[in-house]
Design a binder for these strands. Structure first.
Lengths: 357, 357
DNA sequence: ATGAAAGCGCTAACAG
DNA sequence: CTGTTAGCGCTTTCAT
């Protein structure tokens, strides 16, 4: 039943035990662990042998204490009380982060805070308690206390998204060009002959929402289509938000013929509500969305959406964070992960306009 | 710009600095941190004052080293290479775990392994490297190396799900009664007049799949309906699996009139494929699923599914893990989280049978 | 009620 | 190339 397993089940075997067993000094063992080049192959073999025999595993805390580093990355999620958290976006970024972290032998420490205040406290503990070597922020809020704190402390960190106030905060971040993506998407709808294009955004506290909105507006303005207030709505909750937005928009005397929706999950809500109302997509209404999470292709109808390469965002963020750890003096950098439109079946030419065009 | 912030930006303030400032010994400061009852209130105040002034934060690694505990829980996910990972199940369990962990001031350390081997190595490091005080396994595979290892080491851990070999492994776990849930669901379909009920299971390496299958079979047998091999299929990948399963099943000379599907996300795949084939749910085919993740209500049509209280699973698992830490001699326990059927619109009476009944 | 000192397990000068 | 030694920052006997 026992899988391999060291000698004893119990007492911790330390570097000293190994040293004794191998007839060398503890420091030598330490050097072998670090695979120092100044140790003879013979000794290395001898020590490694002893380690194996005793089932030695280095104690992480001791090492961190002596080293002043932890080989772990702190990952900060938005407050988990919120349902945003349920977005499949998160497992996917984490997969990306994990992947890079693994490559370079970093571990992941997760924030668990449910409120902004809790998160702030936690981050403080991570930083000052030396629990992590760097932090990755999985969101970027408009005036974020946590980000400000990290910035002031000169603690290595990366954000996924971007600081709202980019001019005054020189920060390393990984982001999509959400402005351009949103603009492009709106233009696409315009090209399909739509003019009454509504926008359903997320929480306006998030920078991504602002960027989406501006892209949308600029596209309309460039096309000389008026931006209407009743056509831009924002909702915090993903699913309910999508549903409520539809109610608002479809109650308007003049209904939109196309929708730009901030998030795929929200789009699921939108589609559901539309279905209940008997409005068909894309026949009566075209929809285009953002993120391309895995289930997106399974909506009814399959949604056209912008793939933002979530995995890549995570991977790059981890990369930047680790670079910062290795070289704290490194200049900040801004990585833009390319997006791409994934055409499926939720968009269609606007029939009404065809005659007029 | 600076948020509060201690005195200096730079050098680490330690317990000694605080001691000096407060005119006490380091040990006294330590006792104040632990809020020892043998310290006068006066001294406590004085020390706390000094801590505040200096912006003191305890060093976690030092503390862990001295204490032999870390106040952190290791969370082990299934291999993240697999797409299983994208299941919204995970954010939700983690939310549950976080919640309990927070209450008791525990942190979360996440496994990042992409292969079984990597995970095994990682867990070994967590355990022997004293990185965590206990481990929560987020899955239960049929003959899991990690679980066996933890068991052999007598390391505190909990699994979500259950050991396959329950008789021989006395393990604390948190689970649903997946057998009963599956049986109930099948019986429900039977009551609706269905007899040709097919079963689409997940990866047979997971214990939950086995339990589902047995519940399904027993329900049929009790009703004296023959269990047909061509009606039980298993698929690993969630979305593709669902789609492929449908192809298999609908190619059969005698098609099923109802489906029991192992997972909501899989059901999305099933619904998508069915839609493409022009088979309508629930008119032509009834479907019932498991998990009730958040988006489940947004399928087309909204799916009937079994709510397994994912959050609760996580919360209880964390609870058990921490109990084990506090009292390693505590007896193992098995917690069953209740499930409940959430009726929506994917099931319907079997018309064919109505006449014959 | 508080201080002195040893030690948790490892690393990193400094010697040789 | 390898050993000696002094910490890393905190906790915890053992004194007082």
């Amino acid at each position: 039943m026992l899988y391999e397993g060291g000698e004893e089940g119990t007492m911790n075997v330390t570097i000293k035990d190994v040293a004794k067993r191998a007839n060398v000094a503890p420091s030598t063992v330490s050097r072998v662990i670090a695979n120092s080049s100044r140790i003879s192959q013979r000794t290395k073999d001898k020590v490694r042998e002893a380690m194996k025999e005793l089932g030695y595993h280095p104690n992480f805390n001791a090492r961190s204490l002596a080293n002043q580093n932890t080989k772990t990355l702190g990952v900060v999620m938005p407050n988990s009380a919120n349902k945003t958290f349920q977005n499949p976006f998160f497992p996917e970024v984490i997969r990306g982060i994990s992947s890079k972290a693994r490559e370079l032998d970093y571990g992941l420490y997760l924030s668990t805070g449910q409120t902004e205040e809790e998160i702030y406290q936690e981050v403080q503990n991570m930083v000052q308690g030396k629990r992590v070597d760097a932090i990755i922020l999985l969101y970027s809020r408009v005036n974020d206390r946590v980000m400000n704190y990290l910035y002031e402390q000169h603690f290595p960190f990366t954000v996924i998204g971007r600081p709202y106030d980019e001019k005054n905060m020189d920060i390393t971040y990984v982001n999509n060009d959400n402005y351009r993506a949103s603009k492009m998407v709106t233009e696409y709808l315009l090209l399909l002959g739509h003019e009454r294009i509504a926008f359903i955004g997320g929480n306006l506290d998030f920078v991504v929402t602002v960027d989406h909105m501006e892209g949308y507006k600029d596209a309309l303005e460039n096309a000389e289509v008026a931006v209407r207030n009743d056509f831009t709505v924002f909702h915090e909750e993903l699913q309910e938000g999508g549903q409520e937005a539809v109610i608002d928009l479809m109650s308007l005397p003049e209904r939109p013929t196309a929708l730009v929706v901030a998030d795929d999950i929200m789009t699921f809500g939108v589609l559901r509500m539309l279905d209940e109302m008997g409005i068909s997509v894309p026949e009566d209404l075209s929809i285009i969305s953002f993120n391309n999470v895995l289930i997106s292709e399974l909506s009814h109808p399959p949604m056209t959406t912008v793939d933002i390469n979530i995995y890549g965002l995570g991977y790059e963020a981890a990369n930047c964070a680790i670079e910062k750890i290795m070289n704290p003096e490194i200049e900040t950098k801004q990585v833009i992960i390319p997006h791409r439109l994934v055409k499926r079946q939720s968009c269609k030419k606007n029939e009404a306009s065809i005659s007029t065009s």
